[in-house]
Simulated assay, not measured.
Amino acid sequence: MISNKRKCITFFICLVTINLTACSSLSAPSQANHELKTEINTHISEQFKAYQENTNMNCQAALKPVEQQLTQQQADNELLIKTAKKIEQKLNQLQAKTPSSSTANCPKPTVVEQKLNGKVIVGELEWVYFSVVDEHFRARVDSGATTSSLSAKHIVEFERDGENWVRFQLLHQVTDLDGREIEAKIERTVRIRQSSSDKTERRHVVQLSMHLGKLHQMAEFTLADRSDMDYPILLGREFLQDITLIDVGQTYIHPKYKKSDLK
């Protein structure tokens, strides 16, 4: 009887031991995971704290020169404000010393008439204006030439109302004659001998209205191809005599003609 009881007790103890061992083996991994998570969280917290501290230090190091620049700029601005106030005070003092009724009387500019003994002085080069085309052109003044000359090409003769007329184009390869077409009555025909040749050349003479500054008159021009000349228009003695004097040391003495000059 007693022996049976001992066997039962021994069996019970064995069951309890087996259960405790099984429970111990099941709870061991859970505890290890908890410890690992705790260690990881602690490491992450330490790393994040170190990152924050490092970031704060870098930001402070970067902001330090900016703060210094701002401080210097503020000091410079204060100095400029003080200087401006001093200048303003000096200006106010000067204005207070200057009588308010005083005004500067500047002399009126005088207009120098380009004349001598009633004759208009012209330079070696001048601007001339032709009303027939409403344009200004450069002209060379030459007292050695008898008649004035105009650069013309594509000259065509025709008859109008029983009179001889001519149609031509203002052309010059290096200056400002751009091919404007003009029609004019032929006043006469002349023969011109070039200084570089013994041959004479027949040229038509036309009369055109011309302005040189405020000087206005009808002038005669021979029509010739002046492409090899520096200037498309030459003013000769017939235009210059009795009304002009030439100052070869000057050019463009007279401004371009304006229609308002004669109003």
Rank of each mutant, 00 (worst) to 15 (best):
I9A: 09
E126K: 01
E124V: 04
Q47V: 13
T98R: 13
V111D: 00
E53Y: 09
T71K: 06
Q73R: 12
R6A: 13
S30Y: 15
N77C: 08
N54F: 11
I40Y: 11
S102K: 05
A61F: 03
L26T: 07
N41C: 04
K115R: 10
A50R: 05
E46P: 01
F11M: 07
C106G: 11
Q89S: 09
A61Y: 01
D76R: 08
N92G: 12
A75S: 13
Q31C: 08
Q89E: 13
L15S: 05
L94A: 10
L70A: 00
S25P: 02
Q74H: 14
K119Y: 00
P65G: 04
N41A: 13
T98H: 11
C23D: 04
E46K: 12
C106E: 12
T98Y: 09
Q60A: 13
L125I: 09
E53S: 15
C8S: 15
D76F: 06
L80P: 01
T55M: 10
G123F: 03
A32C: 10
L116W: 05
P99D: 06
Q95K: 15
A32I: 09
C8M: 15
A96K: 02
P107Y: 11
L15D: 00
E113Y: 05
F11E: 12
Q52I: 12
P29C: 02
I40A: 10
N77L: 15
I121H: 06
L79Y: 10
A104G: 00
E88K: 04
K97I: 09
T110W: 00
Q31W: 07
C23R: 01
T21V: 08
F11G: 03
F12K: 14
N105Y: 08
F12W: 14
S27C: 11
V122S: 04
W127Q: 07
K115F: 11
T21K: 00
E126L: 08
K119N: 04
N105E: 12
D76G: 06
V120M: 12
K7I: 05
G118D: 03
N105G: 07
N77F: 14
A75Q: 14
L63R: 03
Q68E: 14
T42F: 12
Y51T: 08
V66Q: 07
K85T: 10
Q114Y: 09
E124P: 03
Q52T: 09
E53R: 11
N92L: 11
A84Q: 13
V122N: 05
N56K: 13
N117M: 06
Q73H: 09
K64W: 04
N92P: 10
K49T: 14
G123A: 02
Q31I: 15
I121T: 05
G118H: 01
P107F: 12
F48P: 00
Y129P: 00
N105K: 09
K86Y: 11
K7S: 04
K85G: 08
I87N: 11
N92E: 15
